[in-house]
Amino acid sequence: MDLPNTSGVYRIEMDDGTIYVGKATDIHNRFHGAIRKGGVLHDAGYRSRDVRALDWMEMPDATDAKLYEMENQWIEYEGGIGNLANRINSPGAR
């Protein structure tokens, strides 16, 4: 997948409807890290072929605080952290 090497927030939806929302300083590396062995989605049994949709918002000049804020907005839009496949409640999900 052709993803940007910039900071921002992202949403991954799998074929079975599972959703993962996160933030990253490098969206490209973060996505591929989630799918690789040891990554949160790989460990949950998913592979890149299972991705139904991948959305992101580039925020190249955003501070960590702004990334957390936007991640939290996306998490809340999805109904809260409890509805997502995120392994750890992000500090942005408070």
Rank of each mutant, 00 (worst) to 15 (best):
A44C: 00
N86K: 02
L41E: 03
P60E: 05
H28D: 15
E69P: 00
A65G: 08
R11N: 02
G17I: 08
N83Q: 09
D64Q: 03
K23H: 06
G80L: 01
W56P: 00
D26F: 05
Y46M: 03
L84D: 15
A24I: 01
W56N: 01
G82I: 05
E71I: 07
R49W: 04
A65V: 00
E78C: 14
N72M: 06
D2G: 09
Y77H: 00
Y10V: 01
D55E: 07
D61M: 10
H28V: 06
I88R: 12
I12E: 12
I19T: 07
A24L: 01
V51A: 11
M70V: 06
T6F: 14
L41Y: 08
D50N: 15
A85L: 04
H42R: 15
Y77E: 11
A34G: 02
D64W: 04
P4S: 12
V21N: 02
R11G: 02
Y77D: 00
P4K: 08
D2Q: 07
N86E: 07
T63S: 09
G17C: 06
V51D: 12
D15V: 09
D26M: 07
G17Y: 06
I88W: 11
M1A: 04
I19S: 03
N5E: 09
T6Y: 13
R47I: 13
I75A: 12
L67F: 11
L3Q: 15
G39C: 09
I19H: 10
A65L: 02
N89H: 03
P60R: 10
Y10C: 01
D2S: 08
E76W: 00
W56Y: 14
E13A: 06
A65C: 03
Y68C: 06
I75F: 14
R36K: 15
N86Y: 04
Y10E: 00
G22N: 11
M57H: 15
M1K: 10
A65R: 08
V21T: 03
A93Q: 03
A62D: 10
N29R: 15
T6H: 14
Y20L: 15
D26Y: 08
I81C: 04
T63W: 07
A44D: 04
M14E: 10
G80Y: 05
R52H: 11
D26K: 05
V40G: 06
W74D: 07
K37E: 05
D2N: 13
P4Q: 06
T25G: 00
N86D: 10
L3Y: 15
N72D: 06
L3C: 11
R30D: 12
L67E: 11
R47L: 12
K23R: 13
D61K: 01
N72P: 00
